[in-house]
Amino acid sequence: MTEVKQLVQDLADQFGRSQESLLPILQGIVTKEQHISEDAMIEVARELNISAAHVYGTATFYSFLNTKPLGKYVIRVCKTITCMMHGKNQIIKELEAVLKVNLGETTHDGKFTLLETNCLGQCHKGPAMLINDTPYTELTPDKVREIIMMYRDKELRVN
């Protein structure tokens, strides 16, 4: 059995095979693989006995259910009103410089993807961003550099 088939089966065992399990299963795939591939969607459709197009339509509705490959760490910088007022553009510029990518791109080593997102519910501490599930707030250019350093260190230690 292919890896993705196994993953989807395990998730379906865990969450069940009714349509109500669709989001939890898709979320599980994203946690593991950072995106939902065509093959993964077909397996989900098979497990839940729904049409593959339905899986696709649902996945593309939700901005966290990526259908295109992303890096290991997905950085989502809030672009909404108070974060904008408090300088999210500078934060993005800094991230672009540190990571050597443009907004929307993934680093060559496949580690980081830089995206924008809407309000993260941290407006009193803007600018704010998420790296995967973790929020970082009251960002300054210096602070984001340190945060990225920290992730890079972590990666070095893992390898």
Binding site: E38, M41, S51, A52, A53, V55, Y56, G57, T60, F61
Partner: peptide
Amino acid sequence: DQLQNIGALTVAYKGKDMKISSFY
């Protein structure tokens, strides 16, 4: 979906990008 139960078509994306699409 309803008459044919095929599900060849779906609505994809949201907001300004929302459109009618087949699988992928």
